[in-house]
Structures are given as C-alpha cells and as structure tokens.
C-alpha cells in the first residue's frame, strides 16, 4: 500500500441487520485517478462506494466496522461532520436526479446550502461549473427553465455540474451511464477523463468495457469480498484470481 493513498479502506465490514454486505474489505485509491469497482449485481460495490460519503447511514439498521480513511483521517471517527464530508465527497447517481427546480437553482443548490446566496457570488461559479461539465453552451439561454425539461444526458451532466459548484475533491459515480445511450455515455466518459486532472474519481460500473476504457485501477468484488484490485490494464489482461478470470471471460454464474 502506498502511503499517499487518497482513500484507504482498512478491514471494512458492513452489516444490514445480520447480513454482511461487505467483508473486511481492504483497498487503496490514489489521488487524481479513476478507480473502477466492478462485479455482479449485489456484490457490494455500490455499498462500498456509499461508505465514502456515508450515504449508508440513511438506511436503518446499518452497522459498519473497520476504518475508512480519506487523506489519512477516519471518516467514521466520532464527531465527524457528515454534511461537511458530503460537500467534499460528491456523488453522481445511477439515474440523473436533478431537482424539480431551474437549471440555475440546481447548480447553485450546494452553494445555497452552504449559505452563499448573493447573485454576484453565485454567477461566476454557475458558469464555471456548467462549462466544466460541458453544458454551458447548451443551457446558457435556458438557465431559468426547469432542469427536468433537459434531455437525460444533459440532466446527468447537470448533476455533475451541481457537484463541481461546491468544489469537492472526490467524486463518486454510481453507474452514471446506465440510463444513457452509447453516444451520451461516450460524452460522460470523455468528461470523466477531463475531470480526473483535478479530482479523484471512484466509479461503480456494470460495464466492463467502460472500466477498461477509463479507469486507472479496477477492483473486482464478489459477494462482499474484494477479490482482487490493481492497475486496470494488468487486471484485465492478467487477472491473478481464478474468480476474476471467470468473471472477465463471462464464465461467471
């Protein structure tokens, strides 16, 4: 394990009631890289992703053990401010979920949550975030229209712009392209490669080709175990574990 890991899981287990959804997971994720989590449905990859912004806390009866370190600090330590944590670690969801508000109010949401409301403060951030998400040219003339009227791929990039506005340093993506067609998926993938220059990205994906195309490191999970993780190229061409081999070659299940 390298010492400068941005994110480090140490023996992380998570229980839904009596069910063990994560089993003593160890993994590190490097800064300004894209780390992909792959594996069959129900393997725990989304659960692992959601430990990072503590979204699992919202589910009644969840218990977590072990350490999740971000920049060396355990984010489950008592006294951790979850709202501050979630501003630092943003999340893009499986289905685009813009709020039923205007495009402008969607992007400025995180700022208003933080108490920043004056137009003079918000306007420059609004434009910068939309530009960074490659959305400015499409929406600059419709900032006051409902975000729900945008096409799906623009909605998803709006959700990304909404994150960028609060300047997180880690972006979590939970199957961000599963509702998008191949062309829109390509656009979001290109955007991710651009964002990687500034942000640490963790993506959960069902699509192995997607993981191979964009990620630097890939982790393969099965039934709550982290079977194997390593540089994406190496993992895809020369997996060390039999089970990873089976999954990659389509022999799983």
């Amino acid at each position: 394990m390298s010492l400068d890991a941005k994110i480090r899981f140490e023996l992380v287990s998570l229980f839904y009631g009596a069910f063990e959804a994560l089993k003593q997971v160890n993994m590190t994720m490097a800064e300004r890289q894209i780390t992909a989590l792959i594996g069959p449905s129900g393997c725990g990859k989304s659960t692992l992703l959601r430990t990072l912004n503590r979204m699992n806390d919202l589910i009644p009866g969840v218990r977590i053990t072990g350490l999740v370190r971000v920049d060396g600090r355990n984010i489950y330590a008592p006294g951790t401010d979850v709202t501050t944590l979630r501003k630092r670690i943003g999340m893009v969801f499986q289905r685009p979920n813009p709020f039923p508000l205007s495009v402008r109010d969607n992007v400025s949401f995180g700022l208003r949550v933080a108490g920043l409301t004056s137009r003079a403060d918000v306007e420059p951030i609004l434009e910068r975030s939309l530009r960074a998400a490659w959305l400015w040219d499409q929406v600059k003339d419709r900032l006051d229209q409902s975000a729900l009227d945008l096409p799906l791929d623009q909605q998803q990039r709006l959700c990304i712009a909404r994150l960028l506005a609060v300047e997180p340093d880690i972006i979590l993506m939970d199957e961000p392209c599963s509702a998008l067609d191949p062309i829109a998926t390509g656009k979001v993938e290109d955007l991710m490669l651009e964002l990687k220059k500034q942000y640490t990205i963790v993506i959960v994906t069902h699509n192995m080709q997607q993981a191979a195309r964009i990620s630097d490191v890939t982790g393969y999970m099965l039934l709550g175990d982290m079977i194997e993780s390593g540089a994406t190229a190496a993992l895809f061409t020369n997996p060390q574990d039999r089970r990873t081999q089976d999954y990659l070659s389509g022999r799983y299940g």
Binding site: M55, G90, F99, V113
Partner: peptide
C-alpha cells in the same frame, strides 16, 4: 416525492431540513 431528490440533496451536504424546504416541499 422520489427518494432520489432526498438522496441528491443530502449527498450535496444539505441537512435534513434544508433538503425538506429547498427540494421536497417544492416537489
């Protein structure tokens, strides 16, 4: 109101009450 609105707001660092009055009541 779809749970995704709730999750989206909380994931952006909103408190429960902020999620309610800024998003859920609007919806």
């Amino acid at each position: 109101v779809p749970n995704s609105y709730r999750e989206g707001a909380l994931a952006l660092g909103a408190t429960r009450w902020q999620a309610v009055h800024m998003v859920i009541l609007k919806a």
